[in-house]
């Protein structure tokens, strides 16, 4: 039963991903990307990773994609892809290279991952449940102890992103002077 659900999900995910690739309309391709993200969240749920699944929906589908759609609407993009890809030789060779990449990788992964044992996550989670510790507790504890440095660095990263986004997206008047918020309000 689980496998049937899984493979259906597999097919839908690939379909949405192809939608991102082949749609000529930017908004449609963004919606396909949302579909991929939601499918992946479902995939994570099948793997009993509830926390990551919900973060995936909240952060990716909820925040990042809204930002994308916002920018698409803001810039009012009506442009479509013009030349069919197969008419451009560079794209053709790029495609050939990409597909080779995929087949080599898929083959290697299939061959070398075959004969693996049962996934260990179920046992780990059962062990946590027996000790009456929620998984989220372990995750958060690890984050502020073992992974404290990346956690702190993330705050720096977000600061840089905020500064960068403000610098790049702030409006200018004709002479290139920054338009300040106070001026706009006044």
């Amino acid at each position: 039963m689980e496998l049937i659900i899984y493979y259906t999900l597999f097919a839908i995910t690939v379909g949405f991903a192809l939608g991102v690739l082949l749609n000529k309309n930017t908004v449609k391709s963004a919606m396909s990307l949302v579909g991929v993200m939601i499918c992946l969240a479902a995939n994570f749920l099948l793997m009993r990773q509830e926390f990551v699944a919900f973060i995936q929906i909240i952060v990716y589908a909820g925040a990042i994609m809204v930002l994308f759609l916002f920018v698409i609407m803001l810039l009012n993009l009506r442009e479509r892809e013009t030349t069919p890809w197969y008419l451009r030789s560079t794209r053709f060779w790029g495609g050939a290279l990409g597909l080779t990449f995929f087949f080599v990788m898929a083959w290697g992964l299939q061959v070398f991952s075959a004969g693996t044992t049962e996934p260990a996550m179920a046992a780990v989670q059962a062990d946590l449940a027996a000790r009456n510790t929620p998984e989220i507790t372990v995750l958060s504890t690890k984050m502020i102890t073992h992974y404290i440095v990346p956690f702190l660095l993330t705050s720096v990263l977000l600061l840089v992103a905020v500064i960068g986004a403000i610098v790049m997206a702030r409006r200018q008047d004709e002479d290139g002077n920054e338009i300040l918020v106070e001026d706009e309000v006044a």
Binding site: L3, T13, L21, L46, A106, P119
Partner: peptide, 21 residues
């Protein structure tokens, strides 16, 4: 459910390739 693991690696490779394309 080791099938899920192996197919997920392949799915990951597939999505990655579609991204590259």
């Amino acid at each position: 459910m080791q099938e899920i693991f192996v197919s997920n690696l392949v799915l990951s490779a597939l999505l990655f390739t579609i991204g590259i394309l």
